[in-house]
Nucleic acid binder design. Structure first.
Length: 762
DNA sequence: TCAGCTCACACTTTTGAATAGC
DNA sequence: AGCTATTCAAAAGTGTGAGCTG
């Protein structure tokens, strides 16, 4: 089976930033102040992010967002379930560790997902990215994981595109979606497209469902799903023996290491004994033959293989200390035992699999570019259960979940806490969690609209406001795609942030979140517009806070700025560079130009339209961006957003690691503050393409030269999208090697990659 | 000295080409 | 000739443990 894997380095703010932890909101100040969401309970425009303290590590932190009003029709109910949730929870209860190696290591357990709610006729792209949960480095001490310091500089974010992408909704919904091809590496110079992570850091995988049309057209609705139980700590060698046991017992490839396996400790010891015996015997023989000894001694020390060969050859009749060395038999036994275990797991999963129903948050019909908030429908139940679980025995808690009961009392660590915190990750008691939330395990859903990173210069096309009241305003001269979104160091911003957070109205509305019944989502009433974060921070953590380039800055909750959003209606297509078929990953980068996706397997699916007009009506009518947190499944909320793209940049404010530890470590909850989802990075910006003509594929004469853009996508001069007809990936440029110079100025610059590091720094 | 990393190893499953059978 | 099933070797995925590194 040859999976045509598409690897591309999309630069997405989403992947780059991941979910920002609340309350350490991280959008650039100039944008943060302009980020408002409307909420029924909070009619006034409430800035998503504190104006003063935007600096925060890009981490996964869900923000609780009041869900859309129940009265609103839910047009977009994308649901995702984690099929092997039970297995994940088993690991999570101990403290999931993921081996990362230089060559890349697969994740185990892998992400096995079920999707529903997609438009069968539309194409979607599934993306996997992994973002830091906090800003700490961990060490396994005293049987548990403890934060022992600050995280290392963030590495280039890469996104793994599911090999089937793009595929129709029918395709995705007809089978289990697995991301087992994705590999993790700690090689910062990795050229294989693996997801680069730091060892001994804590991460949260995220899955993004993006409408292919939208991605190809520099925008699009998206759904982001996060399963708290899939958090893990990266290691180069397992630290917790329990994890090792679980891996061995669960992973078929590790079958040999099982108790009765051929590579078990017992067998290995036996082999070792035999080797030593043979070696000793051989040496004795050699030593007994003085004549030969001088001749033969020069031979190299027998290798283990040689020794084993000798041993096997000389010990065929030797009784096996372990009860008989019969590979076939042992192997057979090994297979039976684990399989049964897995079956049990499956049964458990089935029983535990909640009927997750995440409410989607219909976006603004008019396409208003407003941060839309969807409520964590099931937040209460899930929250409480999660909290309860906290107290239990898991090796680490889900840091991303703030205290349920209280936004107002959301723990906001002092700066001092940050430096010396020795976070001990508490385990999550999933069973408790599940049992406690009978209604629905689904977490809250949060939907966000993400501005599409606009071109950096005036020449770049700009999105014409479809609605005057909700238009984006760009300040090309002041804000470039390179403009960092974060402007203050975490330490300096913490106190302010805390104050702001505590004062934030939303933080005092935990009770307002309705239980998930699909009707509890608070509707966004007040018109809210936030300045289009046209550029994601190149190095948000280092970016100065003072920079406020955007013309439309509104830090006042009452302010409803009208900002023009640059339109990226046209995609600048180019072929992906050829990549190994098995994995193709992209670095989503918000700031740097993003290449148009070229999906090799488009041709064996529904004909790919050359331009938006050719696409069927979007299943994400509002170009929604949604984020859903759920234990095992969730329904993503869709929000109306024209330029929604997976963007970590627009992701929720980063939660301070310590904050995280305090809130989550002490309690895992599902009451999240509003989560802002990042957006799929746009293709290359026009100016970039101009300087790199090679990026542009030959124009397809058969395609209309000037396709009429849909209303949501104002005319934008560009090359018509030319979908590659070759079923095999033939990426003409190192698409997957596009990196953004990360915050902290990551030194591991990819020399062979396109230099995306040159961007304005404020 | 030691925590963390790299690498070779043995074992396993997966993959896909080659072959056989219908 | 075409299709399907089977076989088999190579490739790739595992954890382990010794050795290396800073």
């Amino acid at each position: 089976m040859s999976h045509k894997i598409l690897k591309a380095d999309l630069k997405s703010s989403v992947s780059k930033r991941g979910l920002e932890m609340y309350p350490s909101l991280t959008l650039a100040s100039q944008r943060i102040g302009d980020c408002f969401y409307r909420d029924r309970e909070v009619p006034a425009h409430i800035p998503l992010f504190p104006a003063a303290c935007e600096m925060a590590p890009r981490m996964v932190v869900p923000l609780t967002v009041p869900s859309e009003s129940a009265s609103k029709p839910q047009k977009d109910e994308v649901k995702m379930e984690l099929e092997n949730s039970a297995l994940w929870k088993q690991f999570s209860s101990v403290g999931t560790e993921m081996i990362i190696t230089k060559k890349g290591r697969r994740m185990f357990p892998g992400l096995r997902l079920k999707l529903s709610g997609l438009n069968p006729s539309l194409r979607y792209i599934l993306l996997l990215d992994i973002v830091p949960v906090d800003n700490s480095r961990y060490r396994f001490q005293g049987g548990g994981w403890q934060a022992v310091g600050g995280a290392e500089a963030r590495l280039p974010d890469r996104v793994f595109i599911h090999p089937d992408s793009p595929a129709t909704g029918a395709h995705w919904q007809s089978r289990t979606i697995s991301f087992h091809y994705a590999k993790l590496t700690n090689n910062t110079l990795d050229t294989q497209g693996h997801i680069i992570l730091h060892s001994l850091h804590r991460y949260q995988p995220r899955v993004h469902v993006v409408e292919a049309r939208d991605v190809l057209r520099w925008a699009g609705g998206q759904h982001t799903f996060i399963f708290p139980e899939t958090q893990f700590i990266t290691v180069t060698a397992y630290q917790n023996n329990k994890i090792t046991e679980l891996k061995i017992n669960s992973n078929p490839f590790a079958k040999g290491f099982r108790e009765d396996g051929m590579n078990s400790k017992k067998q290995r010891d036996a082999r070792q004994k035999r080797k030593m015996a043979v070696l000793t015997e051989t040496l004795d023989i050699v030593n007994c033959d003085p004549c030969d000894s001088t001749e033969l001694l020069p031979q190299p020390t027998p290798t283990s293989t040689d020794l084993q060969t000798l041993a096997l050859a000389s010990l065929p009749a030797l009784p096996d200390p372990s009860g008989g060395f019969r590979p076939e038999e042992a192997s057979y036994q090994d297979t039976l035992v684990p399989e049964q275990s897995l079956d049990l797991n499956q049964a458990f999963m089935a029983s535990q699999m909640p009927d997750i129903t995440m409410q989607e948050t219909p976006g603004n019909e008019l396409g208003n570019n407003i941060i839309e908030r969807s409520d964590a429908i099931a937040a209460p139940s899930y929250t409480s259960s999660f909290s309860a679980a906290q107290t239990n025995s898991s090796s680490f808690s889900s840091a991303i979940f703030p205290q349920p009961s209280s936004f107002s009392s959301l723990p906001v660590p002092n700066s001092s806490d940050i430096s010396d915190s020795q976070l001990t990750i508490l385990p999550i008691n999933y069973p408790t969690l599940l049992s406690s939330s009978p209604a629905t395990p689904s977490l809250q859903q949060t939907s966000f609209t993400f501005p599409t990173p606009p071109p950096s210069d005036s020449s770049s096309p700009q999105l014409l406001p479809s609605s005057s009241s909700n238009s984006y305003h760009m300040a090309p001269d002041t804000v470039t795609p390179h403009t960092p979104t974060s402007f203050c160091a975490p330490s300096s911003c913490e106190s302010n942030l805390q104050d702001q957070i505590s004062a934030h109205p939303l933080l005092h509305q935990p009770s307002q979140q309705q239980p998930e019944d699909g009707n509890d989502e608070p509707s966004v009433q007040a018109s809210a517009a936030y300045i289009y974060p046209n550029v994601l921070p190149t190095n948000p953590d280092l970016a100065p806070v003072t920079a406020q380039p955007l013309a439309c800055q509104h830090h006042s909750p009452a302010a409803a700025p009208s900002c023009s959003l640059p339109a990226h209606t046209a995609s600048t297509p180019f072929a992906f560079p050829s990549v190994p078929p098995q994995m193709q990953s992209v670095s989503l980068q918000s700031l740097s130009p993003s290449p148009a996706l070229h999906f090799p397997n488009l041709n064996h699916q529904a004909p790919a339209p050359a331009h938006a007009a050719a696409f069927p009506p979007s299943s994400l009518p509002h170009s929604s961006s949604s984020l859903a947190f759920q234990p095992s499944s969730c329904r993503a909320a869709s929000s109306l957003f024209q330029q929604s793209v997976i963007s970590a940049a627009s992701l929720p404010p980063a939660v301070h690691p310590h904050n995280l530890s305090n809130s989550s470590a002490s309690s895992s909850t599902c009451s999240f503050p509003p989560v802002e989802i990042g957006a799929i990075p746009p293709p290359y910006r026009p100016e970039v393409v101009l300087h790199h003509p090679a990026l542009l594929p030959p124009l397809d004469s058969s395609l209309p030269s000037s396709p009429a853009p849909p209303a949501l996508y104002p005319a934008f001069p560009s090359h018509p999208l030319r979908l590659h007809q070759n079923s095999h990936p033939s990426l003409s440029i190192p698409f997957r090697h596009l990196y953004r110079q990360h915050q902290h100025g990551h030194p591991h610059y990819q020399g062979s990659y396109l230099d995306m590091s040159k961007r304005a720094v404020f």
